[in-house]
Design a protein around this nucleic acid. Structure first.
Lengths: 223, 223
DNA sequence: AAAAGTATTTTTGTATCCACGTATCATAAA
DNA sequence: TTTATGATACGTGGATACAAAAATACTTTT
């Protein structure tokens, strides 16, 4: 018998990378709740490595704002206050607004068609629960941002989407599913079609700031 | 977490924290050049600790964009292309614009006086070389941001100032010192005095986007 | 019951070892 | 001279064991 059951080969990713992905995924899905303690040894055992790469992953997650690392008191899952949630939407509004403005020169018929397809997919995914919808929603916003061709901007926006993801899920699952979502996003596409970069920026800002209160209100009620 | 003009109190000094501060400071001052390799052992010896906390500090610095960490190839000092420098100024423009808009309700005569004092100090610091001027400049922008009372926004803006700091120093030292700086910043104060939040936001955006080409052009010439 | 002191647990940092990927450089082949 | 090839040195990533420091829990005493 060949070495079929020898030691699992670490293919491309480092252990730290694996720990980071593992934890980020769990946190995005809401598997841990705010305030939960993350014990390096446990996590390490869970994914079959030592605590060292896990601790390094903690640092990155802390930079992303997904966990809080307090000296000598370990790692706890970060939660967002309503104010913080609001703040993130404020930041998103200007960043994604900027992205739309910068993307405008590259918006052509093809791109617009893609966005409408994504909108349809988002709609359909909405039937089957929060998980798919949230992903499609991120995809919609992400594709628009991508056309700005600004790597750092894209990255920052993406990071913000990750942080609010658990709350989007709760919102989508427990509240009535965002009814206005389709029209809101259709309005963004319409603004993109107009060709007016400043106008599209404004519409995107309004869209994002408009959804913030609904989500914030709901989240504050559900605790 | 970068802390150019952060308000966070220093809790306790872990070794990782010390390594992070040490390296961030060195990178901000331009003690290392883009592409330089940072060898954990060396740095660890330099500040009297082992490799581990240094490596953890690397992760944070990488999240901040100050270094690049490639698997099995260690840690190298990040450099910004002209495009990236531009991008950061674009992001700064909307973030600091937002900060000004949100700060407006808290702008009173006292605040305006403080800003004018800071402007004077910046001017005076300009005589004595880049080091003081850059710090004062960050302080000026930082104090305005602080009035927005948005911790995450403040933090992100601060992080961006850290990343561009070495380039600001080069610019200030080697180019003619930014002559228009005083008027530019005075214009921002004037806009704040007007009480019109949207107008002030726009002035701040223009100020930031206006300085970008000068710096970018100079940096691209000096390599 | 409150305070003080002691023990225990947890976190953090150190030291050491090893496997593996990368880079360097000399040598061989084209 | 250029291009492959291969040996070798080096650094990184990771594991493990251990020590120290801080926080927490637990007594004991007043």
């Amino acid at each position: 018998m060949p070495a079929a059951f020898s030691v699992e080969p670490r293919l491309s990713a480092t252990a730290e990378e694996e720990a980071y992905r593992h934890l980020q995924r769990a946190l995005r899905l809401g598997r841990y709740k705010p305030g939960d303690r993350l014990i390096p040894e446990e996590i390490a055992a869970e994914i079959g490595m030592s605590r060292m790469p896990v601790r390094e992953a903690f640092r990155r997650l802390a930079s992303d704002g997904l966990v809080v690392l307090r000296p000598n008191r370990g790692c706890v899952v970060a939660g967002l206050t309503v104010d913080e949630l609001y703040e993130i939407f404020e930041i998103r509004s200007v960043l994604e607004g900027l992205a739309v403005r910068l993307a405008m020169p590259r918006i052509d018929e093809e791109a617009l068609e893609e966005f409408e397809n994504l909108l349809d997919r988002m709609e359909r995914a909405g039937q089957s629960g929060s998980s798919d919808w949230v992903i499609r929603h991120q995809e919609f916003h992400g594709r628009i941002c991508a056309l700005s061709r600004r790597p750092k901007l894209i990255h920052q926006v993406s990071a913000l989407h990750v942080v609010i993801e658990p709350y989007m899920r709760i919102w989508f699952d427990d509240a009535d599913k965002p009814l206005s979502a389709r029209e809101e996003h259709a309005a963004v596409i319409a603004a993109l079609r107009s060709g007016d970069a400043r106008h599209a920026e404004e519409v995107m800002q309004d869209h994002i700031l408009g959804t913030a209160p609904m989500l914030a209100e709901f989240v504050s009620a559900s605790r």
